[in-house]
């Protein structure tokens, strides 16, 4: 029968060799009790190595479990699906990267060694606008993403990357729009020159930096039949707009041109 590890009034650890070179009860006690003693107990190379192996084994096991989980996606997803995307499978948006895993690893190592100029995509490709537009294409869009790739929008792209759908419609955020919709100032700060018969006027709203009011009247993509109101009083209130951005709840009414794969709420 094994000797109890903590029997007796004296602490066996006090006499046990800590360098891992000892044999017998003292060493067994040292290893089995190590976690209770904090990092000091792992000062020997052998112990540290063992801990390293165990951590590696745990990570390896987790890695294997996660990647053999199937295509459920719940484990790998960065967060909850955005409203309307709950039924999508991972592969609906995440296209496989070019080449075999071996080629991808090879290219990644080559990039790491400076033998390749650009990093390869490993596993899955980043989600591009084209993937979004497979379902959400609009023939008439007031802010089509490709127009923001023009060189003149260089500074604006740094502030808000309007050339990418996922800048606002960030997936796995659980929200329809992952910001507060107050980015119009980036491009429209010169609206002061626009003189339309509305109350308050555009110059007044710009002077007051009322960028929270834009989406109360205007639909960013312009894909709804609704005409913009002429007074802020007739516009939606701020909370309603924020609720729409958050949940995707209908706001602007009938859509001008629902795309074929897009759900009409």
């Amino acid at each position: 029968m094994d000797q109890p590890l903590n029997s007796g009034s004296s602490d066996p650890l006090a006499s046990a060799p800590l360098n891992g070179a000892g044999e017998g009860v003292g060493e067994r006690v040292c290893r089995s009790q190590a976690p209770a003693r904090g990092l000091e107990g792992w000062s020997s190379r052998k112990d540290r190595r063992k801990v390293g192996y165990r951590i590696g084994a745990v990570f390896g096991a987790v890695f294997l479990v996660v990647f053999s989980w199937g295509d459920d996606g719940q484990v790998l997803a960065k967060g909850p699906a955005n409203p309307g995307h709950e039924a999508l499978e991972c592969a609906d948006c995440h296209d496989p990267a070019e080449g075999t895993v071996r080629q991808q690893v090879q290219a990644a190592v080559a990039f790491g060694l400076g033998l390749r100029e650009t990093p390869p995509a490993v596993g899955r490709l980043p989600v591009s606008n084209r993937v979004c537009m497979d379902c959400h294409e609009r023939k008439a869009d007031l802010h089509p993403t490709h127009e923001f790739t023009e060189p003149k929008y260089f500074e604006e792209r740094k502030e808000i990357a309007a050339d990418q759908c996922i800048t606002c419609h960030k997936e796995h955020s659980g929200r329809h729009v992952a910001n507060t919709g107050q980015f119009c100032s980036t491009c429209h700060s010169d609206l002061g020159a626009i003189d339309k018969p509305i109350q308050p006027t555009h110059p007044e709203l710009v002077a007051g930096e009322r960028w929270d009011t834009c989406m109360r009247c205007h639909d960013y993509h312009g894909n709804h039949v609704r005409e913009a109101p002429r007074t802020l009083g007739e516009a939606f209130d701020g909370r309603t707009v924020l609720r729409h951005l958050d949940s995707g709840a209908p706001l602007y009414g009938e859509k001008r041109e629902p795309a074929s794969g897009e759900r009409t709420r």
């Binding site: 070019e98 080629q103 991808q104 690893v105 090879q106 290219a107 390869p120």
Partner: peptide, 16 residues
Amino acid sequence: IYLFVTAPPPLPEEGK
């Protein structure tokens, strides 16, 4: 050996 000696054809590089 896996990555270099018996390597498959390298992936084409984007932009090249």
